[in-house]
Amino acid sequence: MDMVFDGHNDLLLRLWRERQEGGNPLQDFIKGTSAGHIDAPRAKRGGLAGGLCAIYIPSPHDFSLKEPDADGHYATPLDPPLDRHSSLDIALGMAALAHQLEQAGGWLLCRSTSEIRAAMAEGVFAAVLHMEGCEAIDADLDALDVFYAAGLRSLGPVWSRNNIFGHGVPFAYPSSPDTGPGLTDAGVALVKACNKLGILIDLAHITEKGFWDVARISDQPLIASHSNVHALTPVARNLTDRQLDAIRESRGLVGLNYAVTMLRADGRDNPDTPLSDMVRHLDRLVERVGIDCVALGSDFDGATIPNAIADAAGNQRLLLTLRDHGYDQDALDKICRENWLRVLASAWHE
């Protein structure tokens, strides 16, 4: 079985919501549940050995994609910016859950690639704390230092909404990612602080202008943890060929997103999506950026994924399909984990 280190999931959001509803998320993760995509037993069955686990502040209302028109086109308005203080409360709650899971023996919170490899060797889920959208961080970046001390090692300055650091792309099809301004002055300071501390910067939800701002300022490889190919599925969240070329030139990484809206040629939110659509995007990524710059970024617990995978336990079905398609073991090792470990080591100054 191929061990996978995955670039993005929203497990902490799911567990946090479960706790808000009076559930027992720690035991559900450790012993298993039918909810969502990831728990420890299903991860083990599917070879999901670890990943970047997002602290993400949900919208105060039920967010959903706007219904497409007869041609399948849609343009979901950006959510309004969030209040920082309530966002900080939620972010601390999710960070606490991550530490409580470690204390309960559910996973290991990793701050280095050697810790990731050690956890995988022990058969324990290797979790890396990520922040998807920095609504919980103040402009003075005091909270950034606190979250770093708590284990934060990766962040995306924005989700698909605007904040004090920059602008996010909407969920829209068809649409260019060039939908608005880029980084603010506070966003520039955030990028520089992440470079100094050794926090990976994720460009998955940022506008194209923001992407180029980070490319100009950052000394890290360019990373889009869960994005696909705009030329194949022209949603605003996918990457243009020019962006992919910049990722290749920086020896960065693109994590293949399992979200069906970002895989299908028609952009529809339809789980009856064949694995061949995933292979099509991965082939084009390899062609454009090279085998050393492609990995996986499932978006488990954050998106509709193909029924053929269903949840973490079905992860190996994609890898078997890639093997049958002609990817050899060396290529699969890179896609499954080695490329992620390389770029993490670079961002973390190892």
Rank of each mutant, 00 (worst) to 15 (best):
M3V: 07
F5K: 06
D6I: 00
G7P: 03
H8C: 04
L11M: 06
L15R: 00
G23E: 05
P25A: 07
T33N: 01
S34G: 15
P41M: 09
P41R: 06
R42P: 01
A43N: 02
G47V: 02
L48G: 00
L48E: 06
C53S: 07
P58C: 15
S59W: 07
S59C: 15
F63V: 06
S64H: 14
E67W: 12
H73R: 14
Y74T: 12
A75Y: 12
P80M: 10
S87C: 12
L88M: 09
M94P: 01
A96W: 05
Q100C: 12
L101R: 02
A104P: 02
R111W: 02
S112H: 04
S112N: 04
I116H: 03
A119F: 04
M120F: 00
A121R: 14
A126L: 01
H130E: 08
M131P: 00
E132P: 00
G133C: 02
E135M: 08
A139L: 14
L144S: 05
D145W: 06
A149G: 15
S154G: 03
S154E: 07
W159I: 05
R161H: 11
R161L: 12
I164M: 09
V169H: 08
G182R: 00
L183F: 13
T184M: 08
A186G: 03
A186L: 15
K192E: 12
N195M: 09
I199L: 06
H205P: 11
I206T: 13
E208A: 09
W212F: 07
W212V: 05
S218K: 05
S227Q: 04
T233C: 15
P234Q: 14
V235S: 09
N238D: 10
N238M: 08
L239F: 13
T240G: 02
D245L: 09
R248V: 06
L256S: 08
L256E: 00
V260N: 01
M262K: 04
R264I: 10
D266K: 00
G267Y: 04
R268D: 05
D269Q: 11
D269T: 11
D272R: 15
H281P: 08
H281F: 08
L282F: 12
D283F: 01
R284Y: 13
R284D: 15
L285K: 07
V286M: 12
V286P: 11
E287Q: 13
E287D: 14
R288I: 15
G290Y: 05
I291G: 08
D292K: 15
C293F: 07
A295P: 10
S298H: 02
N307W: 13
I309R: 06
A313C: 08
L319N: 06
L320R: 13
T321M: 12
L322Y: 02
Y327I: 12
D328I: 13
E338S: 09
E338C: 05
W340H: 08
L341M: 14
V343Y: 00
S346P: 04
